[in-house]
């Protein structure tokens, strides 16, 4: 039986009067690569950020394995916000990669990567450093371990950020438009790293504008528009025969 890692039900979110998520349902199974596409402002980044509670959804439920993300059920059955420590504990089990990398500028590449494992997970420092070096080698940054983020290109920074997330040994990786802030010639090197992660069986949710990547690497593609899940299907069907006119229209605009 396939194990469901993320189970989202009727997830809703408003910023003031602006209803950005209007009830999203989604299952992500273990080992699956899910691409989330849609026009800007469709709520896809907000939804992704709800999965590790960087954004607090205000209706519905998101389950990560057996744990409800961000809330706990009170005695009367209503949802109340969970303790900060439990929310933090869930976050350590998911890695997140941001559009603007968000490396810690006062730390070297290696220090960035070992910060979470040593300070948050309190794992053995020597073991963490050894693992970090393997990871940095894997993302092609073996020569940059002692460099500071400001001296790296955007593509290198993003690869370091991926290594930082992987060092936590996450069960799920969240990518929030990981290549959108990159110069076009640097996009490939980041996508290559993500491709190899996917090949290794990592469970991934990727908000992206890279349709080529979504089509090649994703197991399923979710199309969002205006806070709704328009459809979710295999890349073949989404890209060749979408069932919803909104998807066809969006793809026509981005793929020409």
């Amino acid at each position: 039986m396939t194990e469901i890692l993320i189970k989202a039900r009727n997830v809703q979110k408003s910023f003031g009067t602006h209803h950005v998520l209007k009830g999203i349902d989604l299952d992500i199974t273990k080992g699956e690569v899910l691409a989330i596409i849609g026009p800007s402002g469709s709520g896809k980044s907000t939804f992704l950020r709800c999965m590790n509670f960087l954004e607090e959804y205000d209706h519905g439920e998101i389950w990560f394995g057996t744990e409800l993300v961000g809330y706990r059920k009170a005695a009367n059955g209503s949802l109340v916000k969970d303790k900060a420590s439990r929310i933090a504990a869930i976050r350590t089990r998911m890695g997140m990669v941001f559009q603007n990398f968000n490396l810690f500028p006062h730390m070297s590449v290696l220090e960035n990567v070992i910060e979470g494992p040593t300070v948050v997970q309190r794992r053995d420092r020597a073991e963490v450093i050894a693992q970090a070096k393997v990871l940095l080698d894997r993302v092609g940054l073996a020569a940059k371990v002692d460099d500071y983020p400001e001296t790296l290109s955007g593509g290198q920074q993003q690869r370091a950020a991926i290594a930082r997330a992987l060092a936590m040994n996450p069960e799920l990786m969240l990518f929030d438009e990981p290549t959108s802030a990159l110069d076009p010639e640097l996009v490939g090197e980041v996508l290559d790293v993500m491709r190899s992660l996917a090949a290794d069986g990592m469970t991934m949710a990727v908000v992206t504008h890279e349709m080529g990547f979504a089509r090649e690497v994703a197991d399923r593609v979710m199309m969002m528009d205006d806070g709704n899940r328009v459809e979710i299907d295999t890349p073949e069907r989404i890209f060749t025969n979408p069932s919803h006119p909104r998807t066809a229209e969006f793809l026509q605009r981005v793929l020409r």
Partner: peptide, 16 residues
């Protein structure tokens, strides 16, 4: 300090 630094710190499970 940019909001992204808070996001990155929280994403690796740091408390406030």
């Amino acid at each position: 300090i940019s909001k992204g630094q808070w996001d990155a710190a929280r994403a690796i499970g740091m408390s406030y």
